[in-house]
Design a binder for these strands. Sequence first.
DNA 1: TATATTTGTGTATGCAATACGCATAAGTCT
DNA 2: AGACTTATGCGTATTGCATACACAAATATA
Lengths: 228, 228
Amino acid sequence: MKQNIKVAVDAIVFGYSNNQLMVLLIRRKYGEQKGQWALPGGFVKDDEGLDTAVVRELQEEAGISVSFLEQLYTFGDQVDRDPRFRVISVAYFALVNPSRLVLKADTDADDAQWFPVQELPVLAFDHADIIRMAVARLQSKLKYQPIGFDLLPEQFLFSDLEQLYATILNQDIDRRNFRKKILSLGVVEETTQKVQQQSGRPAMLFRFNKRKYQKLQKEGISFEIKFA
Amino acid sequence: MKQNIKVAVDAIVFGYSNNQLMVLLIRRKYGEQKGQWALPGGFVKDDEGLDTAVVRELQEEAGISVSFLEQLYTFGDQVDRDPRFRVISVAYFALVNPSRLVLKADTDADDAQWFPVQELPVLAFDHADIIRMAVARLQSKLKYQPIGFDLLPEQFLFSDLEQLYATILNQDIDRRNFRKKILSLGVVEETTQKVQQQSGRPAMLFRFNKRKYQKLQKEGISFEIKFA
DNA sequence: TATATTTGTGTATGCAATACGCATAAGTCT
DNA sequence: AGACTTATGCGTATTGCATACACAAATATA
């Protein structure tokens, strides 16, 4: 069986800080694309699964572990995506919550850094396209799956959640209807703690009940969220 | 760069005839799995894109060309999916309309045949899982994209369309509300032709206006269909 | 001519998304 | 201390869409 195609995995890791959606990028250390920014990723080992490979690469290149991970798409229609040789790349979509947002640059990367999605540098290969697709996936997923909580700390303000939706979906949200809708899903609980921001009325902290969500999900309940 | 992973593509091709959802399968000619039924597919050539590879394989193995094709998922978490060596498979989801449903068995296959999704034979590799995922995709896609028309002849009866939805989604549908909903989307047109079935009032033939759909889609109009 | 069969249409009801106003609990400024 | 600012928290009216449901029209068959 003669075939000479290499298999790589790449990860689009989203984070959220300072009311901005961020993507994790790595500066390439070797080869033609040296110095350019690219998605974290690398070649799959012969004896490891695709999913394992992504987790390993993220650990190696940025010292990061994610809170959500799923396959996005496999890029391999263009034979010359990679100028070195034929590479197909299985792209993964990942989210990290802020507590693990700290990076450790390591062997494969000159540098690992978070970039606002709105201000990306020039990217290697077809990675700009891949990020575009990932953003679209995030936006659509946000509407039918409670995925935003993976981008927030364990306890958060309702205004944070609202801001996150507004930022990622790039639209205004009515605070009152949003709150009503989210609470009606029955998976967000009020804690007993209040927090004072700057001025104004102090806000309650909330928490996402993942266990309850999974239970309801098994019962076939949907979580669609629609906005004006 | 040492890596020894082979890249294959597989296709889940759905057809619709006699009010049944059908899948295209191929009887394997060579190797350990000889005689077993499997999804059409094969190894990708070094100089061809993934998408091209699927189209080629479908032509070679079944002499078929499809009316809808999109990537489904890439299977490669289990290292031993294929007993021969490490293979990752990029699975594609495809639909054929009845006019092209005829098969020509060819070189790579002892036989190519349509099976009702409800009565599948024993399948090679993890192909049963793959089909399950494809059916789920078809069901969910049917609800937010006008994809059912790719399974029907160019001109069809409303009762056909309704039957198709009922069959694939496995639920009853209210004829009056269904018609109202579909027509309100504005992409299904009445032709001038009537057709006599067996007995009863003759029915009008309808046609899907793909051009109009694409135009509306660009304007950001959604096509969600909900049922009781 | 009557009966069975399938297509085609209209209207009432209920629920969920939207729009919108105001009270509350802090800090800040004078 | 009181007036003002800022952000949170809650309730109600409206509207649009999905659902439920019944009868007329056009043909074949007995």
